[in-house]
Design a protein around this nucleic acid. Structure first.
Lengths: 156, 156
DNA sequence: ATGAAAGTTCAAGTGAGGTTTAGGTCAAGG
DNA sequence: CCTTGACCTAAACCTCACTTGAACTTTCAT
């Protein structure tokens, strides 16, 4: 154990590259927790650097903060997560990446035949396939994407 | 030419699967244009089905509406775009998909070594790499992502 | 000719993911 | 002790991509 096992919010921000305000926001969302000094300032564990790193990586893979929180909640309570813990909760990310790659490769292939030929018809070529979570991120009509059963566009 | 070369907003919505309100929104943003009936109702060209399809596909690939507008602006003015036109403006999408696939594959590889071993340090493994546009979608601190020069996290 | 369905505009609301501001408090060095 | 920079809270604000609602109007099939 070092002298300073606890770090300030500013240091956590510097170490992870996220803004101080963002860390407070994550805390409010329950993604990280902080101890407090007598004066009320936050003190984080060094292990929280990993935790925030995980948030950043998972975000890049298209998970919403709420989903990330659900993953993080599966880390062992009470003790600092170790390598095996992180490996466990990262397995799901691996599957997600594989799915995304597969989806993109499908899209890539279709782009050749389909937009290349000028048809660009959703129904015909299914180029516009749902199930690509990463692409649904952000505001807007989430339900439109990924909630399409059978009949979509057909260029008439 | 058919009898009905022009379609209503409702039909365009049905054909593409996007909400009527979204199409009005796209029109306001300059992504599509409409003729008007004497009574003021919008009438779209059949070719606009392709155009809206393109918007949807490009969105899935992580382009913002403004970027999509810029791409669409490169279609020939005055005449209905043909297959070659669509092929031309779709080429850039292909490159983007390739880049995304490459980025994900890199991430996938690192996830094994890096999270697997528990280090999860941003600086050390560069797992958290910028340049993955698709992941930056949605509102929020775009500038945080993709605007990081050298020093990022290092797990102490 | 009529009634329902579909269309119109404009303004305001939504939700994700934060940032910014205002008005203070805390901690560390000199 | 005193300053200075980092920290605190609460609430307001921001962008993006739309949706929703109110209050009417147009279109179309019968």
């Amino acid at each position: 154990m070092h002298r300073t096992d606890l770090i300030s919010i500013g240091e956590l921000a510097a170490r992870t590259g996220v803004a101080v305000s963002a860390i407070r926001f994550y805390e409010a969302k329950g993604l990280v927790e902080a101890l407090r000094t007598r004066g009320g300032q936050r003190r984080f564990l060094r292990a929280d650097i990993r935790r925030v790193s995980f948030i950043l990586i998972a975000q890049q893979l298209g998970l919403a903060l709420e989903e990330i929180g659900a993953e993080l909640a599966r880390l062992p309570a009470g003790r600092t997560p170790n390598a095996a813990d992180w490996a466990r909760i990262s397995t799901g990310l691996g599957a997600r990446i594989d799915a995304q790659i597969a989806s993109l490769q499908r899209t890539r292939e279709l782009l050749g035949n389909c937009i290349g030929c000028g048809c660009l018809s959703l129904k015909k070529c299914a180029l516009y396939n749902p199930g690509d979570k990463a692409a649904q991120r952000g505001a807007g009509p989430r339900y439109l994407l990924g909630d399409r059963a059978g009949e979509i566009a057909e260029v008439g």
